[in-house]
């Protein structure tokens, strides 16, 4: 009796408490939404402004013309080709090295102080300002290895820059594979490599790919390290074509060619006195954001698609 009475007595208090807690719930949800909107709306507004400013330059000519002193004639051709070729080198260096390093650290490396040291270093490297990579590359690639101010140097520099991202995301993707899968594979007599390649790598492929694409999207927008290694600003010709009509059909001269990339071209146009150039800069900025969004979108889509095909 007494017990029942006390509950009834406190009922109002309990209700008040529940109400208060529910209010906190709503409050936090509102704050969270506000924070989310803050980031999202800022990006949208920036993006919208770039599109509104750069709108007159959204045409094919802008992509097929070389830079020029006349804003109306100036285009992005050497910049986007430069960006593309640099990205190719970055991809071909960062991906094999990064994925292999991630697989090794997660599946093969013994747990000792040395591996710990490497792990701490990799995580730290992900936070090093990009200009530091530029300085390292200037000393190492440009002068010591004598690669010059070339596409090769830029690609390797950005490759180094995104290497930690690739390694970390590879490891995280691998970690999401349940131990039972490995145990099952070992149970039927698979070797370590068979387990790693046929199961661990295949199932984590989507996650790894996401990391790679996000890393590449970051590399695409990098300016500081590329300026440090000495990218050009005016270049009105394209590097030699990587594919030739004569055997061996591949040509590597483009690797040693001078180049410029989209963010540098944008920076140059933005610092011009003539306002017409600022339109070009806005259009370039919009293009970079669109490409980055597309890359990230592809990453999400691929991850979704690959995950759907995994049937455990």
């Amino acid at each position: 009796m007494e017990h029942k009475a006390s509950v009834l007595e406190n009922l109002a208090d309990v209700r008040a408490m529940i109400k208060r807690h529910k209010r906190n719930d709503t409050l936090f949800a509102a704050i969270g939404l506000l924070c989310l909107m803050f980031g999202l709306v800022t990006l949208m507004l920036l993006f919208w402004q770039l599109i509104a400013d750069g709108y007159p330059k959204f045409n094919i000519d802008f992509l097929t013309e070389f830079p020029s002193r006349r804003a109306g004639r100036a285009g992005l051709l050497s910049a986007w080709v430069g960006s593309l070729l640099v990205m190719v080198v970055t991809f071909l260096t960062a991906v094999p090295v990064g994925v292999a390093a991630g697989l090794y650290l997660e599946e093969y490396a013994p747990k000792n102080w040395f591996t710990d040291l490497i792990e701490i270093n990799v995580s730290n490297l992900a936070g090093v300002p990009s200009i530091i990579y530029g300085l390292l590359a200037l000393g190492l690639f440009v002068y010591m290895l004598d690669f010059g101010q070339s596409i090769l140097t830029a690609g390797l520099t950005l490759g180094l820059l995104i290497l930690p991202i690739v390694i970390v995301s590879t490891r995280e993707a691998i970690r999401s594979i349940p131990v039972s899968i490995r145990e099952a594979a070992y149970g039927v007599g698979a070797t370590k490599w068979q387990v790693v390649y046929d199961h661990v790598f295949k199932y984590s492929y989507g996650g790894i790919l996401t990391g790679i694409i996000i890393g590449m999207a970051r590399a695409l927008g990098e300016t500081a390290p590329i300026i440090t290694i000495g990218a050009l600003t005016f270049i009105a010709f394209l590097p030699p074509s990587p594919i030739t009509t004569e055997p061996p059909f591949l040509n590597f001269e483009w690797l040693s060619s001078g180049f410029t990339v989209m963010p540098i071209q944008m920076f140059n146009w933005l610092s011009r006195p003539d306002h017409a150039f600022h339109v070009n800069a806005a259009a370039t900025g919009a293009l970079i954001i669109i490409v980055t969004l597309l890359m990230n979108g592809t990453a999400i889509w691929l991850r979704y698609k690959i995950r759907k095909n995994i049937k455990w």
């Binding site: 071909l92 090769l152 030699p240 690797l255």
Partner: peptide, 25 residues
């Protein structure tokens, strides 16, 4: 394919030098 391309890149390092001297830039 990835391994092959990595090998090609490695080979390209040796090409990188010789090409630069030839052109008139």
């Amino acid at each position: 394919r990835n391994t092959l391309m990595a090998a090609l890149i490695a080979q390209a390092f040796t090409f990188a030098h010789t090409a630069a001297a030839a052109d008139k830039i």
